[in-house]
């Protein structure tokens, strides 16, 4: 646990030692601002719902940007060997890095809170669904980040990690829109695996246990695969 936290702290600091964190957060905030507020003023409703619907699409780009470096860069530079030959388990490495990426996403999300307070000034805003929506976003974001970390653990090249994570994130987000092209017996499965259906209730500010279970299982599976991928160096 102690080593996991030490690795997490280092990674988190590393984000802010490089331009990554600032770029990701700034561009995320600007895009949310533009894409959310322009339609907001043309409609007569005080709600964060459009933001919660929009953010998962932005995550498709931002989560891979956050995670692409995590393992790939350490493998390229050889620091992974320095790290793992200390008394550190492969699990600690994966978990520490993952927690740091979730931390950065949480910071980015927390910085959108002023938007909620801003629109609350225009009329009564029900904060119940807002907190629910944020929790849903954090869960979905956690799933994207786990996928991104998995992609990063498969290669030494950050760009490859980014593109693979982008593709997979897009696939999981959109796949349920294409079920009509699939044989009927597959549709319910694909629909279940896609993020779309699980995001629906979160957008409305509701937290459904089944969706929580889905996202958390998704995270666990991705992290487990990332762990296996890191560990596979031993047997090659």
């Amino acid at each position: 646990m102690r080593t996991t936290m030490a690795i997490c702290r280092r990674e988190f600091k590393a984000y802010f030692n490089s331009p990554v964190a600032y770029f990701v957060i700034a561009i995320f905030l600007v895009m949310v601002g533009v894409l959310f507020f322009i339609p907001f003023f043309s409609q007569d409703r005080v709600s964060m719902r459009d933001f919660f619907g929009l953010a998962p699409f932005l995550f498709v780009f931002f989560a891979p940007a956050i995670t692409m470096r995590l393992v790939a860069e350490e493998r390229r530079s050889g620091t992974i060997e320095m790290l793992i030959t200390m008394p550190v388990r492969d699990v600690d490495v994966i978990l520490g890095k993952y927690m740091a990426s979730v931390g950065l996403l949480a910071v980015a999300l927390a910085l959108t809170l002023p938007y909620a307070f801003t629109i609350a000034a225009f009329g009564p805003l029900d904060f119940g669904p807002v907190w629910g929506g944020y929790l849903g976003l954090l869960l979905a974001g956690a799933a994207y980040l786990a996928l991104g970390l998995l992609a990063s653990s498969l290669t030494e090249n950050q760009i490859v990690a980014f593109v693979v994570a982008l593709f997979l994130s897009m696939l999981f987000l959109m796949v349920d829109k294409f079920t009509i092209f699939l044989p009927a017996f597959l549709s319910p499965w694909v629909e279940y695996l896609g993020f779309g259906k699980h995001l629906d209730s979160a957008v409305r500010g509701l937290i459904d246990t089944r969706d929580v279970v889905f996202f958390l299982s998704f995270v666990v599976i991705c992290l487990f695969l990332a762990f296996r991928s890191l560990e596979s160096r031993r047997w090659r």
Binding site: K13, S18, S77, T79, M82, T85
Partner: peptide, 17 residues
């Protein structure tokens, strides 16, 4: 690993620190 210290060839380090 607790009992040994290891210096790799080319000493890779976290250069941002």
């Amino acid at each position: 690993r607790r009992r040994l210290g290891y210096l790799q060839e080319t000493a890779p380090l976290y250069v941002d620190m």
